[in-house]
Design a protein around this nucleic acid. Structure first.
Lengths: 344, 344
DNA sequence: TACGTTCTCTGAAACATTTCAAAGATAGCC
DNA sequence: GGCTATCTTTGAAATGTTTCAGAGAACGTA
């Protein structure tokens, strides 16, 4: 009767001598079926090796059991930590998580979103290439719950979860100023990235409020936020005339900072004595660097978890209101800025 | 007529004044429909904002458009590179990739597999916690194409893709011997992990074939393959009496090596002069470490790509034969073992 | 005009599940 | 035994797509 097919509820029903509806009840409302019947059905399922067909379930029920996260850059561990936070929240809600990676390409992002729409996922979490991209509006227009992660978006068109990047920039540079540095580099880019702009803004704000000369906060733009770009920024830094050369650098993320650190040590500089370095994100490899990296910590997992909760609220709560959650970053001082052998 | 529902083929058909079948043809066999009609249908789709319901498609067509990868450890960038390779191959075949993370927990792995079975994915790629786990047999018994990545499995029960770990162990230790080291540590564990055993075996083989005393190859077992365990192994290493203390360490992966590197430098050792270090995997952060890490490179993306091709072959080719692909690892020598200021 | 070919299009059946009104069984009570 | 209330089970309808046999139209040819 089965001839090789994978068994369906119908087969289970036949084997257990009950109707389709009863088998469905055993799966979805076990409390309404008598213990005896339930056991017989469960037995039949096990014997036949029945596995529920999720497509059919979803088609009829109209609702999927998955969330999706479209991450921006798979090579940055930061996003994996965010994903891990989402995964934990999804697990609690008994949902699966679909992880996609746009690799900073807007076209790839659009392809992923289209497919997720086809899958009718319950909600989409995304760290977009460009928060203003029209394909994001498309989602909200369709009514798909969406939360922007680690970016913000104008108006209250959707929920978002981020860290106060201006504050992050302030505390990083404040820390460097406290360590006695009078000329500081800001490394990051391209400045189409909102975070870069805001971290720089925070850096400038605190710098000026400390009464320092704006000229002494040197902006070294990069093409991307990668280790390789960090190294190249290090070379440019080394190329500056000594009088103009900063004694400390604030990098817009940890990958840049690690690249800078590597290049500097390779060039014979002592960190932090010749060059102090602050990163951003506090990824695991920051602490594990040979000179452990001072960094502005974002609560990565917490970010993901909060985002997941917002998207679930939007999906299930009829009087959901969009929120823009902002977390507070925190400075983690390590050896790349603080020299233990020197009293400050 | 739509009252808020998301539009279906039926709505498109009505709007374009054609039948259901024609709309379906426009999507799946555009060549059989006349240009005029096709354009009218496409117009209607765009106007209504039609998005195909993947569940219904899959239910009827009986086949999904997704592959899945169950990775072992989301904190190790190695697996993300493998995933990236799979993703590229999937993209070529116009499939989506579902990435799950078992976090080295067998129970979590089983949950993911069960869900993937429900989704009727086309094939499963997996780096299993335990290649002998019965829930893997279950998959093959059900006829779901499966490929083991970075592990091997007895017999020819399924395809697998891996690197020759014994060889990897040999070339790592051979390199250290060439650099003049006469006492070497092997750091890795637990030895329930096949890789650890094989890399150690390779190390021992070459060591003995070079006529060295087995006593001089010191095995320092670890609890896990993490940065933290690498640091702790460093402490144990430092605790050995000087006469017994190795001057070089071969770590079973790069995370261990990075931890060891960090601990060693923190303790004032010079790398490689006081301690040379070789890692395994050649993750991106290996090259980016402050003392760039010598490592045994696995072709990570290639591994993923090959695995995806095997699983697709199994899914589509009726006379598919299981294969055990083995890639050749390659030593990448960097500053953690080779001192530029010293002639060898 | 009649006929065969080729090109388009149609509409009903099938996929595996959930849902729900209603039927049936069981038990308690007078 | 008859009645009601409660607990179980049933079976048909519905979900949105693909498939496919066959109906129609258009066209060239004899």
């Amino acid at each position: 009767m089965l001839n090789g097919r994978t068994p369906s509820v119908k087969d289970v029903a036949a084997a257990a001598g009950v109707s389709l509806g009863t088998v469905s009840n055993v799966m979805n409302r076990p409390e309404v079926v008598s213990t005896r019947t339930r056991e017989r059905v469960e037995r039949a399922m096990a014997d036949l090796g029945f596995v529920r067909n999720e497509s059919a379930r979803q088609l009829r029920a109209g609702t999927s059991r998955t969330l999706a996260y479209v991450m921006l850059d798979g090579t940055n561990p930061f996003f994996h930590d965010v994903a891990q936070g989402i995964e934990l929240a999804a697990e609690d809600a008994d949902l699966s998580l679909f992880i996609c990676n746009s690799n900073s390409r807007s076209s790839r992002e659009a392809v992923h979103l289209d497919r997720l729409l086809q899958q009718r996922v319950q909600g989409i979490l995304i760290t977009p290439v460009d928060p203003a991209a029209p394909h994001l509006d498309e989602l909200t227009r369709r009514g798909v719950p969406m939360v922007i992660v680690d970016r913000v978006r104008g108006a209250d068109s959707c929920c978002s979860v981020a860290v106060d990047d201006v504050l992050g920039g302030r505390i990083a540079v404040e820390h460097l100023a406290e360590q006695g540095h009078t000329r500081v580099a800001f490394i990051g880019g391209p400045d189409s990235i909102g975070q870069v702009r805001e971290r720089l803004q925070g850096a400038r704000e605190i710098w000026e409020s400390l009464g320092r000369d704006p000229e002494d906060l040197v902006y070294l733009p990069t093409e991307a936020m990668t280790v390789a770009e960090g190294r190249s920024a290090g070379e440019r830094l080394a190329g500056l005339p000594v009088r103009r050369r900063p004694t400390a650098a604030f990098c817009a993320n940890d990958l840049l900072a690690l690249g800078l650190l590597q290049q500097s040590i390779g060039a014979g500089l002592r960190v932090p004595d010749d060059l102090a370095i602050v990163g951003f994100d506090d990824i695991e490899f920051a602490a594990a660097a040979a000179v452990p990296l001072t960094s502005v910590r974002q609560p990565r997992q917490e970010l993901g978890r909060a985002a997941a909760q917002l998207v679930l609220d939007e999906a299930t709560n009829p009087d959901h209101r969009h929120q823009q959650l902002s977390f507070t970053p925190e400075l983690v001082a390590r050896a790349s800025t603080v020299n233990r052998n020197r009293k400050i």
